[in-house]
């Protein structure tokens, strides 16, 4: 082997090894630091996904709250427009946590990139039955880790403003149906998100926040 050929190999070796070690180091840093920065990364993803043209789910909006929503005791069911899956139909706010986010009917992954999503097997506010709403733990519902009993949650719809007082929280496995009762005849607000809050990847645990209705117009029929 000639001296020039060996020198070329050495230079190539230095180059390749530098790349290899850099990549290994980069991956090591990602694995180590990612759990800390994942909320930020995901938040950026949420912002970017808001204009994702590949999202083929129809996620229109019917949310146009009227100014005279307050102080109504009842609302006629015929004045309510039932949303289609993926429709932005309300706004969810938790003043104590500075949370204000769009509420969608449906909870697909596409929907949850845009806001918080209501399970379509639960009822709309005002019907006197449970309302199950999920949201990303690296989005609006990351703040749920700071929620306290007594905090209020407001859902503003086109037909009324509904207030709920937080009564408790819990952590349960996602397969544990005892954590949420959708058959009860009570308007219980149930918010949930993945737990632990800063975990990376999939988790079977969910963090639940429960609230009881304290105000808002009842829905009546003719």
């Amino acid at each position: 082997m000639s001296k020039s050929s060996f020198s070329l190999k050495r230079r190539l070796g230095y180059f390749l090894l530098t790349i290899i070690l850099s990549l290994i180091g980069y991956i090591a840093v990602i694995v180590t630091v990612l759990p800390l920065v994942s909320p930020f990364i995901s938040s950026m993803g949420l912002v970017m996904s808001a204009t994702d043209s590949t999202d083929d789910l129809k996620t229109g909006s019917i949310f146009e709250p009227k100014v005279d929503l307050a102080e109504k005791d009842t609302v006629n069911e015929k004045d309510i427009v039932m949303p289609v899956y993926g429709t932005h139909y309300a706004k969810l706010e938790i003043p104590a946590l500075s949370v204000s986010v769009g509420l969608y009917f449906g909870d697909s992954s596409q929907v949850l990139k845009k806001g918080v999503g209501q399970y379509i097997g639960s009822s709309l506010p005002g019907y006197g039955r449970p309302i199950l709403i999920g949201g990303h733990n690296n989005g609006a519902f990351n703040a749920l880790q700071r929620v306290k009993v007594g905090d209020t949650v407001a859902i503003t719809t086109n037909y009324g403003v509904y207030q709920y007082r937080v009564t408790g929280t819990s952590v349960a496995d996602q397969s544990d149906k005892s954590a949420y009762d959708l058959s009860q005849n009570k308007e219980q607000l149930i918010l949930y998100t993945c737990y632990p809050f800063n975990t990376l990847g999939l988790t079977n645990k969910r963090f639940f926040v429960y609230g009881d209705k304290i105000s808002g117009p009842e829905i009546v029929t003719d």
């Binding site: 999920g134 949201g135 949420y180 993945c194």
Partner: peptide, 16 residues
């Protein structure tokens, strides 16, 4: 567009 399903009620709500 989905109208109804028997899929689980709780969805994945962690980071993507």
């Amino acid at each position: 567009v989905p109208v109804a399903t028997n899929e689980v009620a709780l969805k994945i709500t962690g980071p993507d």
